[in-house]
Simulated assay, not measured.
Amino acid sequence: MGLDVAVPAGELTGALVDFASVSGSEGPLADAVEAALVGLPGLTVDRDGDAVVARTSLGRPTRVVLAGHLDTVPIADNVPSRREGDRLYGCGTSDMKSGVAVMLHLAATVAAESLVHDLTWVFYDNEEVDASRNGLRRLAERHRDWLEGDLAVLMEPTGGEIEAGCQGTLRVIATLPGRRAHSARSWLGDNAIHRAGDLLTRLAAYQPRTVEIDGCAYREGLSAVRISGGVAGNVIPDRCEVTINFRFAPDRDVAGALAHVQEVLAGYELELTDSSGGALPGLSAPAAAAFVTATGRQPRAKYGWTDVARFAALGIPALNYGPGDPNLAHTRDEYVELPLVEEAERVLRAYLTTRS
């Protein structure tokens, strides 16, 4: 099944949704995207696994990268797509096949002579699963030159607003030891779960920072997200584990964020299990400033981690901008407002073709 990328972006979104592409099974959709791009004039198309990259070579003074992932979370009886008025329902409509549709439609319909930037289109796999499988990470490791640019726009769902940078995230496990005993003689033991009380009290009382960077306010959060312990209904537990997630502003690196958590939870045994640094807004970069001007919107902080951090790590300023609603991502009733899809296309077309 092929893709007609010249049809309106809203219609194309429906076609992409009907191409089921749960993480790890993006192959057929990647094939269709590659075939559509190869058929367009003026593009060099490369592929690595199920990631497809297309680039213009017009000799423009700046290069803009537009990126979007092809995969979705598992389908929840929400494929094929269906339209109700101005809403298109289906798995991936918001996160982020509407953004991918805008990218593909622009690649097919923007005349090369009108472009003021060279463009790189990046469609990648496995964003919704473990970071080790992420297609953009793989491209950065194997084909750094494919991703070069003055600005990257990640078409993650933002409701048509600009969300700059992103928070960093880390998880630690706090282990609380105790002494096992029969619950009928509880005084002979030391209940590890009870010992979590002070730690939870510290977390509940924690006052997070709010940090303003480039006019964007990033609020931090330190939260217990999982507790496990106990072996039976008649045994005093001798071990309790509390998993703690710290979402931190991008002015901290991972080492600094970990040091802060260790300070807040001093006295507890902590094991770092996962971490990803954030991304600064980068709004002072000329290409980013021009993008903000083109949208006419006030950028806001991105709450959560996105792949803009991967571009930032490569020294490329990056923004999140897409037509989907992040609050609808991964839901059974996921949908996208079609007027937002049309607006995203207009905004990007104006940015890519308007000379300052």
Rank of each mutant, 00 (worst) to 15 (best):
E241L: 11
E241T: 10
V242Q: 03
V242N: 02
V242W: 01
T243L: 05
T243V: 13
I244K: 02
I244S: 04
I244A: 06
N245G: 05
N245D: 15
N245S: 15
N245K: 12
F246N: 02
F246Y: 14
F246S: 01
F246Q: 03
F246L: 11
F248D: 03
F248E: 05
A249H: 00
A249S: 14
A249N: 05
A249E: 02
A249D: 02
A249G: 01
P250W: 08
P250L: 13
P250F: 13
P250D: 15
D251V: 04
D251E: 08
D251R: 03
D251M: 03
R252V: 03
D253E: 13
V254N: 07
V254I: 11
A255Q: 10
A255M: 09
G256I: 07
G256H: 04
A257R: 12
A257I: 12
A257T: 13
L258F: 12
L258N: 09
A259D: 08
A259S: 13
A259I: 09
A259G: 12
A259N: 10
H260V: 07
H260M: 11
V261G: 00
V261D: 03
Q262V: 07
Q262T: 11
Q262H: 14
E263V: 02
E263T: 08
E263C: 06
V264C: 00
V264M: 06
L265N: 07
L265W: 10
A266S: 10
A266H: 07
A266I: 00
A266K: 01
A266C: 01
G267A: 01
E269I: 04
L270S: 10
E271S: 15
E271D: 15
E271V: 15
E271Q: 15
L272Y: 05
L272D: 08
L272A: 12
L272N: 06
D274F: 14
D274P: 00
S275G: 11
S275Y: 10
S276W: 13
S276F: 11
S276I: 14
S276Q: 14
G277V: 14
G277I: 10
G278D: 09
A279E: 03
A279F: 05
L280D: 02
P281C: 12
G282N: 04
G282W: 00
G282E: 01
G282P: 00
